[in-house]
Amino acid sequence: LQAFIKTLTGKTFTVEMEPSDTIENLKAKIQDKEGIPPDQQRLIFAGKQLEDGRTLSDYNIQKESTLHLVL
């Protein structure tokens, strides 16, 4: 599935991932794409901060969901 990552500066980019991917995997993909170390990334979806060990499906993240990236 493709999801949108929106930063506080208003920049939006897309990442490809599977519902079974962990938040940790997602942070690694963001690092590959944007060069931001995972330990500096905080991802917010539906008002909740996402925990590394959980999966996208745990948070009911669907295709074309928008996640907010806070540094």
Rank of each mutant, 00 (worst) to 15 (best):
L1T: 07
Q2C: 10
Q2F: 11
A3L: 15
A3M: 15
A3N: 03
A3E: 03
A3C: 15
F4Y: 12
F4H: 13
F4K: 13
F4E: 06
I5K: 00
I5L: 03
K6S: 10
T7F: 11
T7S: 07
L8Q: 14
T9A: 12
T9M: 10
T9S: 14
T9P: 04
T9H: 12
G10T: 02
G10P: 02
G10A: 03
G10N: 04
K11I: 09
K11W: 10
K11G: 07
T12A: 07
F13Y: 05
F13C: 02
F13K: 00
F13M: 04
F13Q: 00
F13N: 00
F13D: 00
T14L: 11
T14M: 13
T14P: 05
T14G: 05
T14C: 07
V15A: 02
V15Q: 01
V15T: 02
E16V: 12
E16P: 10
M17C: 12
M17G: 03
M17R: 00
E18V: 11
E18G: 09
E18H: 14
P19R: 08
P19V: 09
S20W: 14
D21E: 08
D21Y: 05
D21R: 02
T22K: 07
T22V: 04
T22E: 02
I23L: 05
E24P: 02
E24V: 07
E24C: 07
E24A: 15
N25D: 13
N25W: 09
N25E: 11
N25P: 00
L26A: 01
L26N: 00
L26E: 00
L26F: 03
K27F: 02
K27L: 02
A28R: 14
A28H: 12
A28N: 11
K29C: 04
K29D: 01
I30N: 00
I30Y: 00
I30Q: 00
Q31W: 15
D32F: 10
D32K: 13
E34L: 15
E34G: 06
E34V: 15
G35C: 04
I36K: 02
I36Y: 14
I36Q: 02
I36R: 02
P37L: 06
P37E: 06
P37N: 06
P37T: 05
P37R: 08
P38Q: 13
P38C: 07
P38T: 14
Q40W: 10
Q41W: 04
Q41K: 00
Q41F: 14
R42H: 12
L43E: 00
L43T: 00
L43D: 00
F45G: 02
F45S: 04
F45P: 01
F45Q: 04
A46C: 09
A46H: 14
G47M: 03
K48W: 06
K48D: 06
K48E: 13
K48C: 08
K48S: 10
Q49C: 11
Q49S: 10
L50E: 01
L50D: 01
L50Q: 01
L50G: 01
E51R: 06
D52R: 03
D52K: 04
R54T: 06
R54M: 12
R54L: 12
T55V: 08
T55Q: 08
L56Q: 01
S57K: 11
S57I: 09
S57Y: 09
D58G: 03
D58L: 02
D58P: 00
Y59D: 01
Y59I: 07
Y59G: 02
Y59W: 02
N60I: 09
N60K: 08
N60A: 08
N60Y: 07
N60T: 06
N60C: 05
I61N: 04
I61F: 09
I61G: 04
Q62N: 14
K63E: 12
K63R: 12
K63N: 15
E64T: 10
E64I: 06
E64H: 13
E64W: 12
E64C: 09
S65W: 05
S65T: 11
T66D: 04
T66F: 09
T66M: 08
T66N: 05
L67N: 02
L67G: 02
L67E: 02
H68C: 11
H68T: 12
H68M: 13
H68Y: 15
H68E: 12
H68A: 06
L69N: 00
L69A: 01
L69K: 00
L69P: 01
V70D: 06
V70S: 07
V70T: 09
L71P: 07
L71Y: 10
L71W: 08
